[in-house]
Design a protein around this nucleic acid. Structure first.
Lengths: 226, 226
DNA sequence: ACGTGTGAAGTCGTTCACAGCG
DNA sequence: CGCTGTGAACGACTTCACACGT
């Protein structure tokens, strides 16, 4: 099932100034709260206290309140927080109350898995194109999108108005692809290649390194053993 | 190409006591240093200063030295650090100088992509089994491993001596699978399902939520705009 | 001279405890 | 009375600056 029609980019509602200098941990936890609120809403919860929310996530009630209070007043004294309202606020702060256009580079195993991932749309993330360097894969279809040549990157970015790129190519190719993506004007990259990318400081990169997660877990086990 | 023969579990070299109460940020950065050192080694670098290493990773030289110093004395005054030596030390601290056995649950698109991911072996992470609940997928082969029924979880964990589990099942099934994994005695879980898992406190969980990464990047863009 | 290891100072984030509102 | 919002106290991580080793 293809995405909804491509959204125009343009002016959107502004953010409370507080968001500009929000501590990174606060912003990271907003995503966490949002996910948990979605799950609680599925269960039919209509009101939730900072204590309850915190218990589910391993945080103290005070911390939950501090996090929200930094961005505004979203709660109701004596009552708690109302999930629909709170979720709307969080989505607004994170900037996902408006659509974002995403392109995917790399149509290997991982790329295909990412392309077919449900759940991007629910966060207003819309996959607009899939690119690959392997000529034998061109014109194949992945979740409704024809695979395009990596050489067409500039055109594709212009046509799709993409703001985010996902890199899912082999490690050896990652930096080259990254450089091309940066040249295309994209300012945010999600990198799945097991390689640390070098980018100009105005570009945001998030590295998802699978081995790294296992490593960190191994360390935990390692400690717990003695 | 299948993994090397299953390693025995048993006693391994101990960790400096300092590692037990290491600040979590220090431990996370060890993985980062390791990845960067691998890349630098590929380029033939034989010695590196805290300044150079920090510049590559966006950290100050002081911080790099503090991080390493917490775990021991790995540097050479007037010279810098020697990558092979330093990497050996980091691998030891993280506990990846010994093999770990991993099982994968979920043989969908993402599961297959993860199973075929090169680069686990280089971190001493060895995939020993793939399980799925879909009967139609049983006995299929994924990177040399026959898919087993999820019902055989307990047996598989016992036979493979698995210490880590990767969950790559649909969101709706994730908590159920997680509970079964916990019952099997596994103490570390890497979760790719877009769902926050509830586990007993002695179990470590790491959630890799794809939408969450895009969200955080969207926030960065959102800010940079105005 | 160059670069590490390290206490001391500073900054940032978390916890606490309570005032105030529903 | 329950629960939020918030300043003040606390603790944790980072930065700084310098002594020491090569």
């Amino acid at each position: 099932m293809p995405d909804s029609p491509p959204p125009p980019s343009g002016p959107y509602a502004p953010l409370p100034n507080s968001a500009s200098h929000a501590p990174p941990p606060y912003v990271r936890r907003l995503s966490l709260y949002l996910r948990m609120l979605e799950q609680l809403t599925d269960k039919g919860v209509s009101t939730i206290s900072s204590k309850q929310l915190g218990d589910h996530l391993g945080l103290t009630d005070g911390q939950v309140r501090k996090d929200f209070a930094h961005f505004g007043q979203f709660g109701h004294p004596g009552v708690g927080y109302r999930p629909p309202e709170l979720m709307r606020q969080i989505r607004h702060i994170l900037g996902i109350d408006r659509p974002w256009n995403v392109i995917l580079i790399g149509a290997g195993n991982l790329g295909r898995a990412l392309a077919s991932h449900k759940g991007f749309a629910g966060r207003n993330m819309h996959l607009r194109a899939v690119l690959d360097s392997d000529a034998s894969r061109l014109d194949e279809e992945i979740s409704g999108l024809k695979i395009e040549s990596i050489d067409r990157l500039q055109d594709v970015v212009a046509q799709t108005q993409a703001q985010l790129a996902i890199i899912a190519v082999p490690a050896i190719a990652a930096q080259g692809v990254c450089d091309a993506v940066v040249r295309s004007g994209i300012k945010a990259i999600l990198n799945f290649a097991p390689r640390l990318l070098t980018v100009p400081c105005e570009v945001s990169v998030s590295n998802v390194d699978l081995a790294q997660y296992l490593e960190q877990l191994a360390f935990q086990l390692h400690l717990g053993e003695k």
